[in-house]
Nucleic acid binder design. Structure first.
Lengths: 165, 165
DNA sequence: TACGATAGTTGCATGGCGCAACCAACTAAC
DNA sequence: GTTAGTTGGTTGCGCCATGCAACTATCGTA
């Protein structure tokens, strides 16, 4: 396979620019689309882990959640999330505790074993990113981190808002 | 579902920082992981399209390719790619032309219809990103675009190198 | 000419996923 | 209090993407 060259990237950018009006938006959108594609093919290697890790990360961040919360966040069918939770509970990665006031609800939370699992997966990814950005200046890494964090936050809010509407 | 707050993000960052040593790397890695998770759950909605669009984008950028090239790029089994190519050829998105010198090889390329399909998908994503970054200053959008482009390039190169080894 | 290597395609099993149907529990109206 | 409707969550079922192994066809080479 031919390695991507500057010429090819120029062609790509021209193509994407064809699809949109604003060129500043087109470049960032093009890169984001490529990054999501990267995420997809990188996850393809460890398909079974992708959803599990995403769930574990969400639970690690935002304490106990209900199944419906995870379903909404992951944009997956409730049945799919339910099956994942069962499987993860069997593996000891999450624990389910029934709600006192509403016995239909079960609160799902990450276990110490789940945190360990998540940390291992996170370390692997961080190691890869370190390798990719090995010769980046520190300032650029910080800048990318800050911009990405804002993007992720705004993305979550945008999706959240549009789903409420 | 509770909307992400700064407090929660702080907790997340602390968790990821636990998993790595360098804090500058940890923030950018954390954001990148979240972005890949976003890509996954965003693609979950239109599952069948994700791989197809990724293939179409690759073909649009780098002219005719062999099935093995796409297989390596997408990190998918040759059989999977073969089936996708057949299906996409049936839909008129790609065309296969046999190689003159080596009759085992078939060169796959995107058709005008495929370009149209890709542009539609690209426009949809760009529209979403525009919505997310609606109130960003122009300079930040440009900066993110440039940093991401470098990251994608370096990522491709890193993966490429590690697969050659 | 014969044998190994390579490009690509099928047979088959696995697993994630969505939809629909379902059950249990809560709420409200009477 | 009883009944009807709603909500949270779980199964039944089929679909589809994927990987592995086996296969065919072609190429290169001894």
């Amino acid at each position: 396979m031919a390695q991507p060259t500057n010429l090819l990237r120029e062609r790509t950018r021209a193509f994407v620019a064809d699809a949109v009006s604003d060129s500043a938006n087109s470049q960032v959108a093009f890169s984001l689309i490529e990054l999501m594609n990267i995420g997809k093919r990188f996850n393809a290697r460890q398909r079974e882990q992708a959803t599990v890790n995403s769930m574990l990360a969400k639970l690690a961040n935002e304490g106990p959640l209900r199944s419906a919360d995870l379903s909404q966040f992951l944009m997956l069918d409730p049945s799919t999330v339910s099956r994942h939770i069962c499987s993860m509970a069997d593996d000891g990665l999450v624990a389910r505790t029934p709600d006192i006031n509403d016995r239909r609800v079960q609160w799902v939370d990450i276990t110490p074993s789940g945190r360990e699992h998540l940390q291992t997966a996170t370390r692997a990814r961080v190691a890869l990113f370190e390798q990719v950005m090995a010769d980046w200046p520190e300032a650029d890494r910080i800048a990318l981190g800050q911009l990405l964090e804002r993007f992720v936050t705004d993305f979550d809010r945008t999706i959240f808002d549009s789903e409420q509407a």
